[in-house]
Amino acid sequence: MGRILKSYIFWTYERGSFHYDVMVTLILAFIFVTPHFWNYGDHPSVGSFAPSEVVVRAAGENAFTYQIPAEQVRGNSSAPFEDRLEQSIGRISGPMVIDHYDTLKDASGKVTAYKVWAHR
């Protein structure tokens, strides 16, 4: 048993042999299975974009979602909130009708951005 384990550690088996195939299978299993059970902490952070950057995604025919940084919406505090959202979107896509919006917060509860669903 010790000799087999030593051969596995030093990878001494010939390619195509049973033990070689077992080693390759174990390595592939480790690569593809462990991310489902182990958190490597390599997820992108939410709201990590520039204060002037707006993320736009298609959400159907003539419908879009916008992720607008909170700093950009806070710019003109005298206008109503939905008007400020429309202004931010209008600079990018022209006149749009806002369907609804959600507030995006970081782990501490601070508002980082707004996700807006809009259509033409």
Rank of each mutant, 00 (worst) to 15 (best):
F30D: 06
H119F: 14
V46M: 11
T112L: 05
L104K: 11
T65D: 08
P80S: 07
A118R: 01
P80H: 15
G109P: 13
K110M: 11
S88H: 02
Q72V: 12
K6V: 12
T25S: 10
S77L: 09
D106Y: 00
S88A: 15
R91Y: 08
Q67C: 07
E71H: 09
R91W: 05
A50H: 04
S52L: 07
A79I: 15
Y40C: 02
R15C: 06
S48A: 10
R74C: 03
F49S: 05
G94N: 05
F81K: 00
T25M: 11
N39D: 15
Y114T: 00
T103L: 09
Y8P: 07
Y20T: 08
I27K: 14
Q87A: 13
W117D: 03
G90V: 01
I68F: 14
R57G: 00
R120D: 09
P51K: 03
G60N: 03
F81Y: 04
Q72H: 10
V56M: 06
K105G: 11
W117H: 10
S7Y: 08
V111D: 09
H36M: 12
S93C: 06
R74V: 11
W38Y: 15
Y114A: 02
I27D: 04
T25R: 12
S77N: 09
M1C: 12
A29Y: 00
L28V: 11
V54Y: 07
S93F: 00
